[in-house]
Structures are given as structure tokens and as C-alpha cells.
């Protein structure tokens, strides 16, 4: 058994299509982080089906919970708290994790902590680099979100830029579906682009000059229009070109925010931050500016409970437990707890 003097948090994440349970010590040291992905269940629908996600969480949560405790080699009595993502996300999916966490808190006589999923993504950075300190800029890119967050301090966030239409991951999914490449679009396009050696098609960037906001819907339309005009274009040239355009916009905007707020640290987060081209370009641009650019390991970019535990550790210290008579908030905003 591990020493029990540390602050051990068990966290549950079920906001979308991953069932995950993690145990984290002192908000930074990951003892376990079990993730069960439902991607195969949703692939034939080309997107996440909420009712399928909810049913799958209910079935998978217990085995995942058991494995997370086993791998962490902790017993429930050692825990300081039990946490769960309580928004934003799919209502039915969130309720499974929230209900399980509250029930465990009751049964084990521990405090319960409800965690904002987006705040979890922000805290993923601290899992690998406990040394970094705000102020910093974090760009959150996923299937549901694309935003640039000015983290002034832990708990003090300003969303300084966000998408006005599709999220980046959604745009990848839509373009991949249009080109018949499969689901999920991000990883598929990433793989194609990585192996592509020709000249990518150049698409307009949709920079929305001067603002930190994004628009990806026009870029998706540009791909469709291009294919209509040039039906013989190989898919890999289109996919590589689209990815290049998206990455260009994302990194340019992020660097604009870094310059505008004069921060010395920039982080990536969210599922799309697993994209190789985005990771490389982001790291290179940070280097060129002399900014500490943090690209978390892929397991901390995609949805995972370790980042929820990291955020819960801080939230518990900052404002104490969440009452047991709270539920989930599907459209929870960053900075709100419930």
C-alpha cells in the first residue's frame, strides 16, 4: 500500500463517449487513469449518439472503477474525495458519472467534488508540469469546443476567443464524412496527412482578422466547393490541405493571444490537441517566440478522468465539497461549477 499522507482524489469522467476513472495524488501525480472508449459503438452513425453513450457508461463504469482502484493500489479509505465531471456534456452520460461519484462519496463517507469538464482540460497541463504557473494561454480544441482561454490564475479564466460556428473536431468529422474517410475524422485525417508526400491543396484560412474567434464552417464549405470543381482531386491532397488550413488558423490565433496578453506560457488541450500537425506547429511557434509551449501527452488531451481529479484537488481546497443534492449541467460554462 502507498503512503496515505497525500491527498488522493478518485475522479469519474463520463461527459461524452469515454468512460474514465482515475486516481491522482496531490493534483499532479497520476496513480491510475483508465479510459474505455466507445468510439466503435458510435462509428457507424458518424457521430456520438447520446442514448448509446449513456447505456454504455452504465455498463462500463464499474469495471473501469474497479481497475482504476486496483492499478492505483489504494483502498477507498485512503481517498480524500470522490469527484465527477458535472458539465458540460451529454445529460444522460453526465448523470451516470455524477450519480456514481455521489453514491461512492456517501458509501465511503468522503466529500464529493463536481468538476467542470473544461476546467479539467485546463488542469491537464499541471499533471505533467506541476511547475508551470499562470498567467498562461490555453487553447482548448475538441469535438465540442474550440476556445482560447486566458488563465489568469487557477479558477480565474477569461475565454478570449471561441468558434462562432463548428468546433475544430466537428469540422474534421464533417470533412472526413464528406470525403468518405471514416469516423472520427480528426485521427483519420491526421494519419492521411502524415503519410502524404505531395502538395496539399491550399484552402482559404477564414482568419477573421484581428479577433481571437474562429470560423470553421467556411473552410468545410471550401473543401466541398473545391471537390465540385475538381472532382478528380485525390482525397489525401484534400485532407492534408484541410488539416494544414485548420492548424494554421488555430496556431496563428493562439499565438496572437500569447502576444496580446504577454504570457510566457502556452498550453494545448482537448481531443484535437492529439493531432500531430497541430502539436508540431504549436511547439515550433512557441519556440520561435521564446514561450514555454506545453503539449500534454495524448492521454491527457483526449477526455480522461486524471485531469478531472487534478481540477478537483484544487477546487476542493479552494471552495470545499459540492453538496450531494446537485446534479449535472449539460451546458455548464467555464468558470461555473453547477
Amino acid at each position: 500500500m502507498r503512503p496515505v499522507t497525500r491527498n488522493l482524489i478518485l475522479a469519474i469522467e463520463t461527459s461524452c463517449d469515454e468512460t474514465s476513472v482515475a486516481v491522482v495524488a496531490d493534483g499532479t501525480e497520476m496513480l491510475s487513469n483508465v479510459v474505455s472508449s466507445q468510439i466503435d459503438l458510435h462509428a457507424r452513425f458518424g457521430g456520438v449518439v447520446p442514448e448509446i453513450a449513456s447505456r454504455s457508461h452504465l455498463e462500463t463504469l464499474e469495471p473501469v472503477l474497479e481497475q482504476a482502484l486496483e492499478e492505483a493500489e489504494v483502498s477507498p479509505t485512503d481517498l480524500a474525495a470522490v469527484a465527477a465531471t458535472n458539465g458540460p456534456g451529454l445529460n444522460g452520460a453526465l448523470l451516470v458519472g455524477v450519480t456514481a461519484a455521489k453514491t461512492l462519496a456517501l458509501a465511503w463517507n468522503k466529500p464529493y467534488v463536481g468538476v467542470n469538464h473544461l476546467e479539467g482540460h485546463l488542469f491537464a497541463a499541471f499533471l505533467e508540469r506541476p511547475d508551470i504557473e499562470p498567467p498562461l494561454i490555453t487553447m482548448l480544441v475538441s469535438g465540442g469546443h474550440t476556445s482560447i482561454v486566458h488563465v489568469r490564475a487557477r479558477g480565474d479564466y477569461d475565454v478570449v476567443g471561441s468558434t462562432i460556428d463548428d468546433a475544430a473536431g466537428e469540422a474534421f468529422d464533417k470533412v472526413a464524412r464528406y470525403l468518405g474517410l471514416g469516423y472520427p475524422g480528426g485521427p483519420v485525417i491526421d494519419r492521411i496527412a502524415e503519410n502524404f508526400e505531395g502538395e496539399p491543396i491550399h484552402f482559404p484560412r477564414g482568419m477573421m482578422d484581428g479577433t481571437l474567434d474562429f470560423s470553421f464552417s467556411g473552410m468545410k464549405t471550401a473543401v466541398i466547393n473545391y471537390v465540385r470543381k475538381h472532382p478528380d482531386t485525390p482525397n489525401d491532397a484534400l485532407a492534408a490541405g484541410f488539416q494544414e488550413a485548420v492548424v494554421d488558423v488555430l496556431v496563428s490565433k493562439c499565438m496572437l493571444a500569447v502576444d496580446r496578453f504577454g504570457v510566457a506560457t502556452a498550453c494545448l488541450g482537448g481531443g484535437v490537441a492529439a493531432n500531430s500537425a497541430l502539436r508540431q506547429r504549436f511547439a515550433a511557434e512557441c519556440d520561435a517566440r521564446g514561450v514555454d509551449g506545453l503539449v500534454p501527452a495524448r492521454q491527457f488531451c483526449t477526455d480522461n478522468a486524471a485531469m478531472i481529479a487534478a481540477a478537483a484537488d484544487w477546487r476542493l481546497r479552494a471552495d470545499g465539497p459540492t453538496p450531494l443534492d446537485t446534479g449535472a449541467t449539460p451546458n455548464l460554462r467555464l468558470g461555473s461549477r453547477a
Binding site: G46, G47, V48, L90, H117, S142, G169, P330, N331
Partner: peptide, 12 residues
């Protein structure tokens, strides 16, 4: 029916 309803959803 449900495939496109992801209010505030987040596919990671």
C-alpha cells in the same frame, strides 16, 4: 433521431 443533438457536448 438523436444523432445530431449534442447540446454543449464535447466529443473530447
Amino acid at each position: 433521431i438523436n444523432i445530431k443533438t449534442r447540446p454543449g457536448g464535447d466529443s473530447s
